[in-house]
């Protein structure tokens, strides 16, 4: 239930753009350079391959309270290697982020508690050592944020987050 509520929360100031770009050297540099040059504020930028090896997909999250998302979209279009831009904030979409969280564990009791928390967040323990656990969690940023808050009680040693990826539904 907790998770559903978090999933349903939408942060209205965050805008998700997906740019389909040619898979050529330097394209990431061009997009990053555009953001810096135009003084656009971006929250995250995730890049990956797609079903078509000649194109890559970039998911760009913009803080719309500081940056006009429509201008970002239009400027992206000016880059020669950008094939298409979609604004996913205006259509129903699936949004995910993946995080790896290394948590300190002092004893078996802690381990058990943390495992329970991981289960509640529908996440997995992917590494166990004497003094720590690594948990893999996927979901919207709010879910990851909540989990981090809870785990902070135990002592977080290391965190890595992928940044948002998104896809329109249907």
């Amino acid at each position: 239930m907790l998770i559903d509520r978090i999933e349903a929360q939408k942060n209205p100031t965050k805008h998700t753009l997906v740019a389909i770009v040619e898979n050529k050297p330097g394209v990431l540099n061009r997009v990053a350079s555009l953001m810096r040059r135009r003084n656009f504020n971006i929250e995250s930028l995730a890049v990956g391959t797609t079903e078509d090896p000649t194109v890559s997909r970039m998911t760009i999250v913009i803080d719309a309270s500081k940056t006009n998302a429509a201008l970002v979209e239009r400027n992206l279009y000016k880059l020669i290697n950008v094939i298409d831009v979609q604004d996913l904030s205006e259509v129903p979409s699936v949004v995910r982020e993946l995080a790896l969280i290394k948590v300190r564990t002092e004893d078996a009791k802690h381990r058990g508690e943390i495992k329970q928390i991981a289960d509640m967040f529908q996440s997995r323990v992917v590494d166990v050592s004497l003094n720590s656990l690594i948990i893999e969690v996927t979901g919207e940023e709010n879910k990851v944020d909540s989990m981090l808050k809870v785990l902070a009680e135990y002592g977080i040693l290391e965190v890595v987050r992928t940044g948002r990826i998104a896809m329109a539904r249907g």
Binding site: N68, A70, L71, R74, N75, Y77, K78
Partner: peptide, 8 residues
Amino acid sequence: VDPAEINK
């Protein structure tokens, strides 16, 4: 002709 100039 440049979309990025409108509303800039």
